[in-house]
Design a protein around this nucleic acid. Structure first.
Lengths: 138, 138
DNA sequence: GAAAGACTCATACTAAAGTACCAAAATCAG
DNA sequence: CTGATTTTGGTACTTTAGTATGAGTCTTTC
């Protein structure tokens, strides 16, 4: 919000400066009015592009942001989340165990807990649920 | 490409028209230069936004299209693809069998063939591969 | 009409996945 | 320090998944 106010203030100031500058330049006769207009056009053209890009970027970022909050709400621990990520990559329990340097038993425990917390019966269903809950970057 | 040329031509024409218009308006003394500048600024601001939006829209549309071609290339049959979709939904073989009104044996056969064609060892990996190949609407 | 491919299904295994229950470290908050 | 979580791991069992093999039906195509 502060950023928005700042940006708009800067824009207004820039506009005023341009007004004064153009008036001076025109009165002094150094620069023709065409050039002034062209400069203003180009400047605001790019300002438009820039503003639009920022607006779209924010929209995209709001989606994959809710992640961690929901993970907490579901009571999923850090380690469990790591396992969930590996599951979504298509790894087997044994492969996950190797990747995280723990035993397969541990992974099984984590997976079992995950299934309860995600209300899933299978790991494939857990992947779907996690995707729906926007817990994963997929 | 034709569209781009057209758009830019239109832009240049618009710019020239604005030049003449502004000169006339200024000389006739009806409108002050500030207003002319402001109008030009606003117009080009929105032109910038519009151009940027179109460019971004094109980028997004090129992605989710390639589907069916790759399915053919991989030699995945119609029925196999249906099974793949059900797998990605998180269903078990038995549940898929019920959904498609066939026996679990049949589903197992399809799944086995799918795994070979998708070069996957598990159904979770098959989901990942399918997603990477943009075969699924996920 | 016969070969080819797709779909179906069964049996018999092997291998993962998942459950249940328990328990010892490690970490963290009050 | 202590109680509460988290993380780790084991055993024992049940359930799914996945493989291999064979075979019958059906449709399409040459």
């Amino acid at each position: 919000m502060k950023k928005t106010i700042f940006v708009f203030s800067a824009l207004i100031v820039a506009l005023l400066v341009l007004f004064q500058l153009s008036k001076y330049a025109y009165l002094s006769g150094d620069i023709s009015i065409e050039i002034i207009i062209a400069i203003i056009a180009v400047v605001f053209f790019f300002i438009g592009i820039h503003i639009n890009k920022k607006a779209l970027r924010k929209k995209e970022k709001t989606t994959p942001e809710i992640n961690l909050k929901k993970v907490e709400q579901l009571g999923i621990s850090q380690r469990e989340y790591e396992v969930l990520v590996q599951i979504s990559k298509g790894l087997s329990n044994k492969e996950i165990a190797n990747a995280l340097f723990v035993s397969e038993s541990t992974i099984k425990t984590h997976v079992s807990n995950l299934l309860v917390k995600l209300d899933a019966k299978r790991r494939t269903q857990a992947i779907q649920r996690a995707k729906d809950l926007e817990i994963l970057g997929i």
